[in-house]
Amino acid sequence: MSRSFTFLVNPASGGGAAPAAVVPVARALREAGATVDVTYSPGPRAMAALVDAAVARGDVVVSVGGDGMLSSLAGLVSAAGGTLGVVPAGRGNDFARMLGLPTAPDQVAGLLLAGAVPAVDLVALSLPGTDERLVAGSVYSGVDARASEIVDRSRRLPRRVQYPYAALRALATYAPARYAVTVDGVEQTYDAATVVVANSAYYGSGMQIAPAAAVTDGRLDVVVVGAASRLALMRSLPKIYDGSHVALPEVTVLTGRRVELRADARVPVPVGGDGEPLGVLPPLAAEPAVVEVRPGALSMISG
């Protein structure tokens, strides 16, 4: 049975690279006899209607952009009971990296046409007083969330240096926070620079923050990077790219299905997910933010 596709394109992804990325892939699919509809993202509310209509037609919904675009579609496609494909065209493409997805147009088209459709886990974040938000890769707080905000202001830099630059800028001004981290009912407190709750091993354009993470194991990897001097954190930054940072004494790795987070610091502790700002962590005396795994929540074309 042949597949039909609805492409949803974020025109801003990859510094404007997404529109160019979609053309050769769509052409190859049409030449193979597939039906392809291409829509440039009109905003979150309209995207939900487009996803529902595409899934009702039996189309594979294809995210054309980066991790933020993929993440915004993942929950919608999951809720509609559809299948998600990806044309990696963002700055980071970390979830695509986790799945081993190709970037060459002919290989992307071939995978969309004939790739397997396993069920992958998603991550659900609930902040007090807000609706649940599903993300694909990870939820992070502290210095990592500040680095993500800096990336969004660094678009004039070459793509390959945006994330390292943002990480160093964030570390240069960071202040540690006191975190309460509860994993499957067991609470521990840490003075930390950041806490990452990961479904995927990768974030930050190739940083292997949670090297043991798997998107099909029904579990979350919680990486706590303890407070240290700014210089020490900067020196350890290269280790995150190969995952060797988890052997450092100031790094703690926990695993579980439900994580509760609270934090106190001089300023509110930001929280983000897959490149998007999501709010701030509640203080220690308040109701926690809750991060839970949603096992097998999304059917996704991969190798």
Rank of each mutant, 00 (worst) to 15 (best):
P11M: 03
G33Q: 06
A49Q: 15
M47K: 11
E31W: 06
E31H: 13
D37H: 15
V51T: 12
A17I: 09
G33W: 03
V38A: 01
G16P: 05
N10P: 08
G14E: 02
R30L: 06
V9I: 08
L8V: 15
P11E: 03
A49Y: 05
M47L: 15
A49M: 07
S41E: 09
A34Q: 02
T39N: 11
V38F: 07
G33H: 13
S13C: 03
A17S: 09
V51D: 10
D37Y: 10
G14Y: 00
M47D: 15
A46Q: 13
V38R: 03
A21W: 02
V22W: 01
S41C: 13
P42N: 03
V36P: 11
A20Q: 10
L29N: 12
A28C: 01
T39C: 12
N10Y: 00
A17D: 06
A26S: 13
R30G: 14
D37F: 10
D37T: 15
A46I: 05
G43I: 10
V51N: 07
A48R: 15
P42S: 04
S13K: 02
Y40E: 15
A28G: 09
Y40R: 14
G33M: 12
A49N: 12
P24F: 01
P24E: 00
R45M: 05
S41P: 10
L8G: 13
A28E: 03
A46P: 06
L29E: 14
P42L: 03
P42W: 01
T39R: 14
A20P: 04
P24M: 01
R45C: 07
G15Y: 01
P44C: 08
V23N: 02
A26L: 08
A49R: 15
G15W: 00
